[in-house]
């Protein structure tokens, strides 16, 4: 009830909207179901996008020109195609595979976001001084060990904020899965809106829920990255 129920607004049109939160409260089961699906969808896509991103990003930092070019091609190819098209590719284009909508959503989201993660991983690796890698190799570690034990941990600290941005973006992007019939938060909101016509209330509600999820991920990443007292380079251009 934070707006007048009726009356003439200064802008010259009639504000004729009665706020009523009751139907929203009654639909809480559907909303929670949608929220759960959104969380699951995001978590699956987040994990897969990270795997894709680390592999492609590492290839992009390779000494081999072929690997670098290949990685760059993958990144450009995937991130310059709209996410919705990514989802349609799995859901409509590869319909003969009969993948469930949820899986199509996960795949579309992960491949698309994976390109962004790859760019961040590449930048992160580049920001770790080459001497660190050399020092690790000089003590007899293998290339893989040097990456896992010395380069990645330092890169993660540096790119944690950018990674947080991409992950928040992923959660918000997951709303597009509603277009391929994944019954996540936005999908349920549309359904509830169709039944109750409480347009404003329902969208404000899910906005708040998305905001909550995004804040949770940002916080989690900040904790994961740990104290940054020893990070040499605290800033990195966002990818």
């Amino acid at each position: 009830m934070w707006l007048p129920g009726q009356g003439r607004s200064r802008f010259g049109f009639t504000v004729n909207y009665q706020f009523d939160w009751e139907p929203i409260l009654e639909s809480r089961a559907l909303i929670l179901e949608g929220l759960a699906t959104t969380i699951l969808l995001s978590l699956c896509a987040l994990a897969l996008a990270s795997i894709i991103g680390v592999i492609v990003g590492t290839l992009a930092s390779s000494r081999h020109k072929g690997a670098r070019l290949g990685a760059a091609a993958i990144v450009e190819l995937t991130r310059n195609i709209p996410l919705l098209i990514h989802m349609y590719i799995w859901y409509v284009g590869l319909a003969f595979l009969r993948l469930p909508p949820f899986l199509c959503g996960v795949l579309g989201l992960s491949v698309y976001s994976g390109a962004y993660v790859a760019e961040i991983v590449r930048a992160g690796i580049a920001s770790v001084p080459d001497g660190q890698n050399k020092a690790a190799l000089a003590t007899g570690l293998t290339r893989l060990q040097a990456l896992l034990l010395v380069v990645y941990p330092q890169a993660l600290r540096i790119v944690a904020p950018s990674l947080g941005n991409v992950f928040s973006q992923l959660i918000k992007d997951s709303s597009l899965a509603s277009a391929i019939a994944v019954m996540e938060l936005t999908y349920q909101a549309s359904a509830i809106e169709g039944q109750t016509f409480r347009t404003f209330e329902i969208y404000i509600t899910i906005c708040a829920l998305y905001l909550l999820l995004v804040s949770a991920v940002t916080l989690a990443l900040r904790l994961l990255a740990g104290p940054r007292d020893d990070a040499p380079a605290q800033e990195l251009a966002s990818a």
Binding site: P129, G131, Q132, A135, A136, A138, V150, Q154, A231, P232
Partner: peptide, 8 residues
């Protein structure tokens, strides 16, 4: 190494 290269 010249610049130590300890793991920070």
């Amino acid at each position: 190494f010249q610049h130590f290269e300890l793991y920070p």
